[in-house]
């Protein structure tokens, strides 16, 4: 039960954090879904490195955090790309 909650929490946090928000923004900069997905996935990989852990402890960032951030980032990029294709003519 806790692990499912943990996963849901990690997904929600990634969606409301840098991978989700910056991912959509970067996705909106291109009409190419592949580029959008890759750009946003990169944010997903970098954001746990930049924002993960804490100032006072040295706990390693888990592969789950990286994986979820990467997938959510890529999905957010694709959403951003879809917004661009639907809402812009350029």
């Amino acid at each position: 039960m806790l692990s499912i909650l943990d996963l849901l929490g990690t997904i929600g946090a990634a969606a409301l954090g840098l991978p989700g928000i910056l991912g959509v923004a970067l996705g909106m900069t291109t009409r190419n879904p592949l580029v959008a997905g890759l750009l946003a996935a990169m944010v997903g990989v970098v954001s746990p490195l930049v924002l993960g852990g804490s100032h006072s402890t040295h706990v390693a960032i888990t592969p789950l955090e990286y994986g979820v951030a990467l997938v959510i980032g890529a999905l957010a990029g694709l959403v951003g790309c879809a917004i661009r294709r639907k809402g812009a003519t350029v």
Partner: peptide, 17 residues
Amino acid sequence: VPHEWQYKMKAKIMAVK
């Protein structure tokens, strides 16, 4: 509740239980 944004959001979502 953690101070760091991503962990804070995670804690808030998990607190729905």
